[in-house]
Structures are given as C-alpha cells and as structure tokens.
Design a protein around this nucleic acid. Sequence first.
DNA 1: AAGTGGTCTAGACCACTCC
DNA 2: GAGTGGTCTAGACCACTTA
Lengths: 249, 249
Amino acid sequence: MTETRLDAVKLDGAGPVYDQIRRAIRDLVVSGAWPPGTSVPPEHALMEQLGASRMTVHRALVQLAREGLITRRRRSGTIVASPPASHAMFDILSIPEEVRRLGQHYAYAILSRSDGRPSAEVAERFGIKRSERVAHLIVLHRADGKPHVLEERIIHAAGVPGVGEEDFAETPPGDWLLKHSLWSQAEHAISAVGAGAEDAALLDIAEGEPCLLVERRTWNQAQPVTAVRLLHPGSRHRFVGRFGPYGAV
Amino acid sequence: MTETRLDAVKLDGAGPVYDQIRRAIRDLVVSGAWPPGTSVPPEHALMEQLGASRMTVHRALVQLAREGLITRRRRSGTIVASPPASHAMFDILSIPEEVRRLGQHYAYAILSRSDGRPSAEVAERFGIKRSERVAHLIVLHRADGKPHVLEERIIHAAGVPGVGEEDFAETPPGDWLLKHSLWSQAEHAISAVGAGAEDAALLDIAEGEPCLLVERRTWNQAQPVTAVRLLHPGSRHRFVGRFGPYGAV
DNA sequence: AAGTGGTCTAGACCACTCC
DNA sequence: GAGTGGTCTAGACCACTTA
C-alpha cells in the first residue's frame, strides 16, 4: 500500500472542476506515478486540498471507478486498480456504409430467398429449430462492381413483424432490419475458413482461399431476431480497432 | 417529436433512487415504448412526479446519456437517441489463460530470439524503422502438447526497460509485458490468411490452411512498446463476443 | 468506535439556445 | 426572455468495514 503525495493532484483550470480532478488523477495513474495498489487520498482530504465540495470530488472518483482505474470500498478507501484484461473492439458498420467509406460504389443483389420452415441443412448451420418460420436469404454485396461480401441470413418471422411483406428491393436486409427491428443482445464470432466451391464462384475467388467468417446472431429479450453469416475474402478484408486499456481513446 | 406520458416512469423501490429512475427510463427505451425521437420529460417534471431532488434525477439522466440511450441539449431538452452503430467486442486474454480456460495443458517454447536492429524483412512486416533497437522473438504456444498459436513479436528496447536482461524462461513475452510495461493505446487488426510453408510446419497444419491473423501494436504515449502477430489455425479458433446495442450485457 | 464511501436534499448560479 | 440542462455547494444521514 504505497503512500501518495496529496499535492501531486494538480488542477489545470480547464473545464468543470470534477473533470479537472478526474483528469489529474487519471494522469497520475496512467503515467505510472501511482502504480496499482497505491492508495488514493480520501475524499475529505481532496476536498480540503482542492477547495471543492465533497460531491464534486466524489463525482470525479465515481467516474474513475466506473472506468476501472480505481477500486473503492467503504472504510478501506480507494486504491489504484490493476490494468483490466484487455479487449478489442471493432465497429460493425452496415456493409453499404463500409463500402462507401472506402470510396467505392455500392450495389447488392438478392440471389435467393425462401420463406417458411428452414431446410435441415440451414437449420443445422444456424442452430435453429426446423419448426420456426423464417426468411432465408442469400445476398451478394459488391464494391465497384466486384464481389465484396457474401451474406447468408435468417430472419425470424416471430421476431420481425412485416418481414413477409418486404422484398428488400430498396434496402439490403441488414440495413432494413436496423430500422424495422429491436434487439437487446447480440453475439459475434469471427473465424477463418477456406471458401467452398459455390461461395468461391460467387465471390470470384479461388476455392479454398482464406476468408473471414463473421457470424452474428441477435435477440430481443429471448426472441431470436436474425442470424447472419458474412463471408469476407481475406485478401480484401481486415477489421481494425483502436483503444486504450480503459476503453476507447 | 412524440409526446411522452410522464406517469409511464415507475420506480420499483429496489436500490438507490437514481438507479431506479435510470432503469425505469432505460426500460421504456429498450422496450420500444419510447422510440427514438421521443422527448423525455424535463428534469423538473420528473422531480415533481417522482418526489426526488433535481440532482438525483439529473444523475440518472446523465448516466443514460453517457450510455448513449438519450441525447440532451440545453433549452431543447432530452430525446431518445437512435441506436448507435453497433460494435463487437472481444476479450483478448493472455494465451496461457485462454488455454487453461479450455481445460487444456499450456506450454510454450521460444523458437528464436535476436536483439538489436531488425532485418529489412522484419522491419517491413511490422512497419518499424531499421534504426530502432528491438528484441525479435518467435514463440510457439501449445495446448495439450499440440501447436496452438504461433507468435512473432517485436519488443521496443526504448519502450520497455529491462527487456535485454529478460530471457522469458519463466513467463512468455506477452504475459511478462503485462507486468513490466505500461501502454496507453493499442491497435488490433484481424484478418484471414493462408499458412505459409514454414508457419504450417511449425503449427502442424497443411500449407495454405486458413488461419486467423491477429496483429496487435501498443504504444505508451507516442513511444512504441510492442508489436505482435498471432497466427491461429482457423479450424481451432474462434473469437466470440456478446453484448447489447449499448454495451456489455 | 471511527473512518470511509454512497446517497440524497435544497438551493444556487450559469450556459446555451430557441422563440 | 425564458426554458432547459450543467455545475457546484454545504450539509446530512446511512452502510459498510476495519481496528
């Protein structure tokens, strides 16, 4: 339990006082001046040192605790936390938006659609019951005319009212669902697979070429909404995320 | 600008008042009862309706705004926000920990190490200058004796004091760095590649087999700390993340 | 018993922005 | 000008945990 120097906390006069306090302590932590285990001065000491009210000091410390930089416990006080398990975050943009950000022209085509109960093969691939009513679609997304992503999607009729009447002529299913469905939970998985013969032909790549497979399933409460498998040719795709140990930077 | 019914906000008496208010409004938003664009009652109206002080109401609303469920502006008031661009988050565990969670036995071997200025090839692959002093390592991680991940790593001598004296006999470089370095920023990229001949031999897979390539670079302020390329055989790996539209669930 | 953080109040002043 | 949120204060009481 290293001691801290109270006078190390210095405000810079910029912005709200609670934020000045938050940044001052954050800087001491991330610079290594207050390593993990260091005890942070109690609220009343910071109050007096900084001439702020307790609520103001408290607000700064609560925020740092929520960000994971410090750990607080009644009576025992506040200490600098150990760095959290790291995580990587990737924005999952809509495919049209992603293509446009690359400065390329976007187009898509619905290659197939069938509504009703899924085939055994489809049910198995998406882990759903054969008794559920779903729409099953295959969509090819193009960037500047070239195949970009192959999408296979299930939409649960019970989770998305109105899907039977929509033909996706104006908007690809992913974007349409953003406006016409609610979701409370999602699961993503990323893996590497070799392109199968059919997929390779549609994507205009060699059979067996490495591809990123992004699988996403969403639910609203317990009701499944949609499940999608996005196949990205490896040579054309890369997911990139930037962040710090305590969140986005 | 849809109107809201003030009496829709109901507290359940469980826990702090500010959290009851936060949950009550959150539930109205995520259930769809208050769709995007709906105006949320002003603080003074909620104060009177709920019999709480303004600070308490404010605290609930600030937190909802930080979570992205509502947007607040002076004078114009508070409205329900549109769902944010979705993001996927994956925990990047240390490899030993990941293997142990799978219930398998972990082992590793340093296949090669060289210290000093990088070769042209290495400098190019990691995007660093040939004048920088680095340690360059190749590490094979095993799970139950089978090759699991092939790691190629650069450690910047200027960013990690003491790396020259460490032989990584006790701890693999990734875990050692967690304890002996500070970082403020990281970048991850995930892509799919086919295994090269050398890599395939080391991983005991066929040449060209699809693999997930995770590239990670970290900095402390502007100083590079480390860069690593982790090659995961696709058939053995899958990154999975679970979350809701407004964060972890 | 006493030190610490957690919550809450009543009121104040200010900043922004729409009318 | 007036309605809204943003910040801050001074004080209070409570809950928890350690000495």
